[in-house]
């Protein structure tokens, strides 16, 4: 583990402050790591996944001995060092050819991870089409009925969604920025297809546009390998919602079946003594009467106090 350092300069203080936990979090930064041995195929997929995740991503140029299923400590070290929460590690061995590990950390501790093998992969540069601009949020589609069937797929879905959903702290999306789509299809509990397309919005004669797609790349067929689901306690801590973001309970307001708002108001008891009745000239009080009235009122108050 890294030492916890105390800032000596103002710039250092700002840098440390930036790393402090936030109530509303920005997009999680991802680190793309080259393992000790890699194949051309898995590296091309890694680079394409990196370019899809940019600008919240770092691609390590040097090789690193990271085997998160054996020892999570190197990963946790990188998490702290780079202030990153998402990892993709590429490796290639005889036992596990063209291997990718998607891992996620919480509080610089390994939370969950899933390992996939790349069976087939077509890199982005092979598609001679226009690419999406950096920094635009992609649309995501998870199709197939297998997604919720196994822990492996659930974890993979959660991590991929976490990685490519972008900065969700902003509740506005530019409609002109809807540029590309990542479609991930689970054929079975073992096989997953990842395809990426650019979106063209065409006229449809209605207010909504007609969507046409053009393959942008990368396209890869993945097989599920090992998986490590999140520890229950750690998951619980990671999914806690801050008090500020919890919906406020509305007091005394209900909605009926028709969706109408029904309010309940609590009022003081009405003082009928001061009720304004019909004014008539004959009932009008003169100045002398007024004084008497005051005295009487004083007395009545006293009586009430008794």
């Amino acid at each position: 583990m890294l030492r916890t350092v105390k800032a000596r300069t103002a710039a250092g203080k700002r840098a440390l402050k930036k790393r402090e936990p936030q109530t509303i979090e920005e997009a999680k930064p991802a680190v793309f790591i080259k393992g000790t041995t890699t194949s051309q195929l898995v590296m091309s997929v890694l680079k394409d996944l990196y370019s899809l995740k940019r600008p919240d991503a770092v691609l390590f140029g040097k090789r690193n001995e990271v085997r998160p299923f054996d020892d999570p400590r190197p990963l946790e070290f990188f998490s702290q060092k780079n202030d990153a929460a998402l990892f993709v590690i590429a490796s290639h061995s005889k036992k596990r050819p063209h291997n990718l590990v998607f891992a996620r950390t919480f509080d610089y501790q390994l939370l969950d991870m899933v390992e996939v093998g790349v069976e087939k992969g077509v890199p982005m540069e092979m598609f001679k089409t226009t690419k999406s601009a950096v920094g635009h949020r992609p649309l995501l589609v998870f199709s197939g009925d297998a997604w919720d069937s196994t822990d492996e797929l659930r974890t993979l879905k959660s991590i991929l969604l976490d990685m490519y959903r972008g900065a969700t702290s902003n509740d506005m999306v530019n409609l002109a920025g809807v540029e590309h789509l990542i479609c991930i299809t689970a054929e079975s509990a073992q096989k997953v297809y990842l395809r990426t397309y650019t979106i063209q919005l065409k006229k449809s004669g209605t207010r909504l546009p007609r969507v046409e797609l053009e393959e942008m790349g990368p396209a890869c067929d993945l097989v599920i390998r090992r998986c490590r689901t999140a520890d229950t306690d750690l998951w619980k801590a990671a999914t806690r919602v801050p008090k500020e973001l919890k919906p406020q309970k509305e007091k005394n307001i209900e909605r009926n079946e028709l969706g109408d708002k029904m309010g309940r108001i609590h009022m003081h008891k009405q003082d009928l003594g001061k009720l304004q009745t019909r004014k008539m000239k004959g009932l009008k009080r003169g100045p002398a009467e007024d004084e008497n009235e005051d005295e009487e009122e004083g007395q009545s108050k006293k009586r009430r106090e008794d």
């Binding site: 402090e20 936990p21 936030q22 109530t23 979090e25 999680k28 929460a85 996620r104 950390t105 919480f106 509080d107 939370l111 959660s158 969604l161 976490d162 959903r165 999140a230 998951w235 801590a237 990671a238 999914t239 806690r240 801050p242």
Partner: peptide, 8 residues
């Protein structure tokens, strides 16, 4: 979706 860091 889990957070990256605990609640401040």
């Amino acid at each position: 979706i889990p957070r990256a860091k605990p609640i401040p």
